[in-house]
């Protein structure tokens, strides 16, 4: 088995054995979804207007909170140094870790948006699109978040710092992801917004991997 596959298996195993995998993030998403109707009033027709925004807010926050430890623990216990000595390029390390984050956190969160969407009164025929946009958006979040986490390795203050760095970069996927849902609700084609969302994922993939690798290199010297 090659290095990338091994690293992916290690990351998945750590996520499942160490912290119950996606349970924590999914629980967080559900808890957020409970707060909203209690705060904004339980009328489903009103909540349905807010639903895309709420789902995206919950998704981005849940991704953010899990990103903080993406590199930090491996930095503290020396795993990053071992990885640097291994055959994998820094770009590959970042890419694999981000992919593992998406598989263990992002995809389950995207599935979790379905019951949340229903509970907030989203029309049932919007749910497939919600799942697709959430899965794509979570991938973009993982890439940009990985960038932020790599740049913040060894910083004095962790979580909030990454949030301030990364949240402005989260905006394009949110705009086009929520835009696709709104377009469909208005009876327009969600295709253009969906294509732009996919473009955001691709840009985030390239920039996130390259800049994340620069962050890893920066943390060593």
């Amino acid at each position: 088995m090659n290095g990338a596959g091994l690293l992916l298996r290690r990351e998945m195993a750590l996520a499942w054995n160490g912290g119950g995998g996606p349970l924590l993030a999914c629980g967080f998403l559900l808890s957020l979804a409970v707060i909203v109707p209690l705060g904004a009033g339980p009328q489903l027709d009103q909540l349905a207007n807010l639903a895309p925004g709420l789902v995206w807010l919950a998704l981005s926050l849940a991704s953010l909170l899990t990103l903080e430890r993406l590199f930090e623990r491996d930095f503290e216990d020396g795993t990053l140094d071992l990885l640097a000595m291994g055959p994998l390029a820094d770009e590959a390390v970042v890419g694999v870790k981000v992919l593992a984050h998406w598989l263990t956190i992002g995809l389950p969160l995207a599935l979790m948006t379905l019951p949340v969407g229903i509970s907030l009164g989203l029309a049932p025929d919007q749910l497939p699109l919600l799942a697709v946009t959430a899965a794509l958006g979570a991938l973009a979040f993982s890439f940009t978040g990985g960038l932020g986490a790599a740049l913040a390795i060894g910083a004095r203050k962790g979580g909030l710092l990454i949030a301030v760095i990364v949240l402005p970069l989260f905006l394009p996927p949110v705009i086009f992801g929520a835009g696709a849902l709104v377009a469909q609700a208005d009876g327009r084609s969600p295709g253009p917004a969906l294509a732009l969302l996919a473009a955001c994922v691709l840009v985030a993939g390239v920039v996130g991997v390259l800049a994340g690798a620069a962050g890893l290199r920066g943390s060593r010297t």
Partner: peptide, 14 residues
């Protein structure tokens, strides 16, 4: 956000 000037400069530049 960093104690080390060089580390801060590299991360922020990216």
């Amino acid at each position: 956000a960093f104690d080390d000037e060089g580390r801060a400069a590299r991360a922020a530049s990216v």
